[in-house]
């Protein structure tokens, strides 16, 4: 295992990087102008957070890599994001459901990280928490609005929830990296975030008249980097192309 702190920071930064990229794919084609603005704003926040996490990861690593080097020059197996965030956008309903499930975890995680013994991490968490609280509020309202909207919007949101639920469990599974972080007081035990997540998700889904699947089966392999989905490679192909095609250029 490489330095657990570096691993942990890559997990945080890769989540926001990959989700920020996915959300930015909506640019100019959202269902309504207000959503174009909101999605761009969410992507912008996530990319800003990425810069903070990955720059800190680079500092911790001490090998001269900055956020850009980590974002644009690593391959699939070196990425540490959750499988949830690399899932394709699908329709708007799936995009918003993915955002909601991630935000509910992200908010719980950042709230705990504000108490981190690592000052740099606590500072990033504090800044990000304000943004993510707003993301969660917006995503919750939209999930409720569409779940409890027309028959079609309800059906689409239920389909999105069923499709994405198997990616929820990974957010709460721990490994040796998490153990090292927890024992150093740097980050919370992932399992400890589940009650806050469940409370929020149950409340929103109830208001949205949506039902989570009974099975809690969870796909794994994103945060450890052991087995990403096929989707991540395509995302990186697009995101990293310019940097890799012209490696000597500065931009």
């Amino acid at each position: 295992m490489s330095d657990p702190l570096f691993e942990f920071l890559c997990r945080m930064g890769d989540n926001t990087l990959v989700l920020g990229h996915r959300v930015s794919e909506w640019c100019g084609v959202a269902p309504v102008l207000e959503e174009d603005i909101a999605l761009a704003n969410t992507a912008l926040d996530l990319i800003g957070q990425t810069t903070l996490w990955l720059n800190l990861a680079g500092e911790v690593e001490g090998a001269g890599r900055d956020a850009d080097a980590l974002a644009f020059r690593r391959d699939v197996r070196e990425f540490r994001n959750l499988l949830l965030v690399e899932q394709p956008n699908g329709d708007f309903g799936r995009t918003i459901m993915r955002q909601f499930l991630f935000d509910a975890w992200h908010r719980a995680c950042l709230s705990a990280l504000c108490e981190s013994t690592h000052d740099g991490i606590a500072a990033i968490a504090e800044k990000s928490l304000k943004e993510v609280t707003y993301h969660l509020e917006r995503a919750s309202d939209t999930v409720i609005g569409l779940g409890d909207g027309t028959d079609e919007s309800h059906a689409r949101m239920q389909t999105a929830l069923d499709r994405l639920w198997p990616f929820v469990g990974e957010m709460f599974t721990g490994d040796d990296v998490d153990k090292a972080m927890t024992s150093a007081g740097i980050a919370p035990d992932p399992a400890s975030l589940r009650p806050a997540f469940d409370e929020k998700v149950t409340d929103v889904l109830t208001n949205a008249t949506l039902t989570p699947p009974e099975s809690d089966f969870a796909h794994r392999g994103g945060k450890t980097g052991k087995r990403h989905s096929e989707h991540l490679g395509h995302l990186l192909t697009q995101m990293q192309w310019l940097q890799r095609a012209y490696p000597d250029a500065t931009w």
Binding site: I37, A40, D68
Partner: peptide, 22 residues
Amino acid sequence: ITRAPTLERKAILLAKVQDEAG
């Protein structure tokens, strides 16, 4: 936006497109 060469350029471009929608 999805091919911007650095995180900073990506953020600037996102902010710009968001301004345009505004």
